[in-house]
Design a binder for these strands. Structure first.
Lengths: 238, 238
DNA sequence: TCCTAAAATTGGACTATACCAACACTAGCA
DNA sequence: TGCTAGTGTTGGTATAGTCCAATTTTAGGA
């Protein structure tokens, strides 16, 4: 079968939707694994696979001898949120202005982080706006071999999506470092703020599933306009 | 069998140790699932369970038709890091000064977040220091029913550990919101900084595995002394 | 009425097997 | 030499069952 969706994914989505639609409320007990297997005409192992992924994602929790229950927190796709998504979720219209784009030999610290010491790479400097108000100044470094031909692409779109969809690099994780400081002259100018508006500096290194470094991003956000929200989980199975 | 450790956990640990000891190096291919099953005298499904958890944790990655490989990044226990741990890792000596401790009826917004509207709770105001330099001012709200008898405990230790070890609440995740601002008078005084030193404001709500809210923390960090580091992963199976 | 022991239920661990889809490799053909 | 069509390997999905451990429910007895 072509384009066939695995059964356990279907069941998982079904449960996910039920939680989102509040048909299943927090604390509510799900039918037992054996019951779900019979009612859906599946084997118990298949049901377990669907439930296990939802447990890992934090949507459900299990108690041996008691049952499987809906977690109290609302489910959130806690992906690495792109700027565009974040802004849209808050009800603003995101846009992007590309200030500079070139291919360079990167500074040593950035080359080290990307594990590409002698490589040429693309560098882009972009302003990210919400309802046409400049919110962030973003500098991105992408090695040639990650995105060959990037210069022909539209950089006003989401870079996050571009790298995944067009160049086939699925972003799996990111290491970010966050701090606060005062903007320098260039940042003040582009963000149209004074030195006394503190900014959030977020440096992120993005990885694929096999641990390959994809790109490095140095971003500065107007702290009065932008808040960084994350959900951190402890490792499952530990 | 009493105190019996599941086979798949044993296999998982074995592989984990091999990676830590560099017997398995990044990029290296593991034996196939079928081979591992035979050599360890297990069924393939059991082997898959061990490997799956390591894939979820980011230690391994799979490629259909090719094999299972060791990820390039070093494995990190990506737990929610406590202040004490973070400071110690950077080579400083952490300490804590308790400024205020009382039981209060909390402000509405905090009661809402903790889903404990009419509950009394503990409130603690603490200074966190690194080598005796004040780095953070921290305000914590903990409902009575989470930590009964907290007033008898030593609050200069790690609250994170206290809640887990003494009160048996395993912290599973946290929602944090991060922004930058200028300190108010009280914060300036306690952190011994001027209004022009930007600070990182991090508000965190901590959860147990079943989504129960455990406590709320409002913290302000000297941005010139403290950096917030995180690793974010996209959801598995998405 | 209340407590306890047995039975039923539930998730946890594990085996054995089957077929599919993606990929690597190789023998053979042009 | 270079391409192609098989063929085998690998992970992906799914079934059907077994036994165990924790918990809840039920039934009986004091």
């Amino acid at each position: 079968m072509r384009g066939h969706i695995p059964t356990y994914i279907k069941l998982k989505s079904m449960i996910q939707r039920s939680i989102e639609k509040r048909e299943l409320v927090p604390g509510e007990k799900l039918p037992s694994e054996r019951t779900l297997a019979v009612t859906h005409g599946l084997s118990r192992m298949t049901v377990r696979q669907a439930l296990s992924e939802l447990v890992t994602a934090g949507a459900l929790y299990r108690e041996q001898g008691r049952g499987t229950f809906v977690s109290a927190r609302k489910m959130q796709q806690r992906n690495i949120a792109s700027f565009s998504e974040t802004v849209r979720q808050k009800g603003f219209a995101p846009s992007t202005r590309v200030l500079e784009f070139s291919s360079i030999k990167p500074p040593k610290d950035i080359a080290d982080k990307l594990m590409a010491v002698d490589a040429e790479m693309y560098r882009a400097l972009r302003i990210r706006l919400a309802d046409d108000i400049p919110v962030a100044l973003e500098e991105v470094f992408i090695p040639f071999h990650i995105c060959p031909g990037l210069e022909k692409k539209d950089l006003t779109a989401s870079l996050y999506k571009l790298i995944g969809d067009t160049f086939g690099h699925k972003i799996a994780s990111a290491d970010s470092s966050v701090t606060a400081l005062h903007p320098n002259a260039k940042q003040q100018e582009h963000l149209r703020i004074t030195r006394n508006t503190p900014v959030l500096k977020i440096d992120s290194l993005y990885f694929s599933g096999n641990g390959q470094t994809l790109y490095y991003e140095h971003a500065v956000y107007r702290a009065d306009m932008y808040e960084y929200n994350i959900r951190i989980s402890t490792q499952p199975g530990k």
